[in-house]
Amino acid sequence: MQLTTKHLLGIKELSPSDISTILSTAEQFKEVLQRPIKKVPSLRDVTIVNLFYENSTRTRISFELAEKRLSADTINFTASGSSVSKGETLLDTVNNILSMKVDMVVMRHSASGAPHFLAKHLPDTSIINAGDGINEHPTQALLDAFSIIEKTGSLAGKKILLIGDIMHSRVALSNIYLLKKMGAEVMLSGPPTLIPVHIKKALDVQVEYNLKKALKWCDVANVLRIQLERQNQVLFSSLREYNLSYGVSKKILSEIDREIVIMHPGPINRGVEIDSDVADSNQSIILQQVENGVAVRMAVLYLLSGRQS
């Protein structure tokens, strides 16, 4: 059984059965990561290039670890210090790398649709999207789903709340696609300036601008990062004010009669979207998300590496 796709461009392009296959395969890789020797020889003959045109800590380390634990050969490429600064185009850069016999490309790019562009021009190479602009971040949504299932048992029927900058968040969009496909209910909360007006209708989600009401509704709250680099767009007045209205604090959680699961894709702005005592509490699964990221990425690489039978 294979995935219905050769690339992982976004959750939008995956079928529910693809998602289930990836998640159940990830479960087996999680077991591999508990072994004394956390490495399997599956991708011994595969070379993968990690093309990072945008900064990243977690995703890059996670992909690199996943590749190494599958015994793949890896090359890391960062835009700074490369010929990109001499004006080489994306397609030229990738074609040059591929002519040195590389089998798969993991790419993060600040332009939405960059991996789709590559996939169109390079049909024989598997392209894995590690985040493109404000479009999608599929492996993050997959690891979030894996972590929710691990913590609560299932996705179907679960009430998941996404809080924060929905408009600029590729994590949010991938999460919405995935959760809807797997039968979960999705609610968005955040300042009206950060939630696209038509998203309710377009993606069949609920919107609740009052954080306390939203938290009361949900089983799991995924707190998104406020992108400090977008501060100059004046979408909310100050970080302090954002924290007062939409920051997840111990106080607001204590006003809810049950314990909800708290998630965050990182990097955390402590004291802005989430307070330290919540991020470090027992109901937060933030570090489990990071741990599961390696297993989920191993599953994606493994399932996309199989050549056509």
């Binding site: 059984m1 294979q2 296959t21 159940s24 395969t25 479960e27 087996q28 890789f29 077991e31 591999v32 399997v40 020889p41 599956s42 003959d45 493994y302 399932l303 590496s305 199989g306 050549r307 039978s309």
Partner: peptide, 19 residues
């Protein structure tokens, strides 16, 4: 489960089972 150690992984993809 020996899926990850198979020598025919390039010919046919197998979905791993529990270990």
């Amino acid at each position: 489960d020996i899926t990850f150690y198979r020598d025919d992984i390039r010919e046919e993809l197998h979905i791993p089972k529990t270990t």
